[in-house]
């Protein structure tokens, strides 16, 4: 149990910083949409233009964010309990790296490394089970999808790797 969940405040007196950041982000997106929609054209000779619907949605987003801010200032709400930052960073960075190199070194090798990281390093599983699952999830999945389901997963863009079947 984390300290956050142990220390329960009866009532917040100030708006949580993450809530303020969220409201700010929605306002920024809404204003951006409002401005871009005007450039797209709200109305044409034949009726509504491509910008009209987004304009309405941008307006709604800004208006609702403003109401939410007023509600928060009157009575601040609790946000959901914090996240495990280590987990978020590990999963997001590993996924981004996987996506970045998948076309270059192929699905099989990149997915094998990805799965080994999550099984052996993060999950602290044994070598044998990690290797078996990583191989099944990378090489096994590649063949199952390519030949079983006729769904092509990427092969390596690097010629040397491609020539050995990766």
């Amino acid at each position: 149990m984390t300290t956050e969940s142990v220390m329960t405040e009866p009532q917040r007196t100030r708006v949580a910083p993450t809530v303020l950041a969220g409201i700010g982000a929605f306002v920024v997106v809404g204003v951006y949409v409002l401005i871009s929609s005007i450039d797209l054209g709200l109305w044409t000779s034949s009726g509504p233009g491509p910008g009209m619907f987004p304009f309405a949605m941008g307006g709604l987003l800004v208006a609702m964010s403003a109401i939410w801010l007023v509600q928060e200032l009157r009575q601040p709400t609790e946000t959901a309990s914090g996240v495990d930052r280590g987990l978020v960073i590990a999963v997001v960075v590993s996924l981004a790296l996987l996506a970045a190199v998948m076309d270059l070194i192929g699905f099989q090798l990149s997915m094998f490394i990805f799965l080994m990281y999550h099984l052996k390093i993060r999950g602290r599983r044994g070598w044998v089970s990690s290797l078996i699952i990583a191989l099944a999830g990378s090489v096994g999945a590649f063949y199952a999808f390519n030949y079983g389901l006729n769904v092509a997963l990427p092969t390596a863009g690097i010629t040397v790797l491609n020539s050995i079947g990766l």
Partner: peptide, 20 residues
């Protein structure tokens, strides 16, 4: 099945699902 294996496999399917 331990959570670490399930998470890894779910992530695998998510990547394949989004890519394909």
């Amino acid at each position: 099945v331990p959570a670490s294996i399930l998470t890894a496999l779910i992530l695998l399917f998510m990547v394949i699902g989004a890519y394909t």
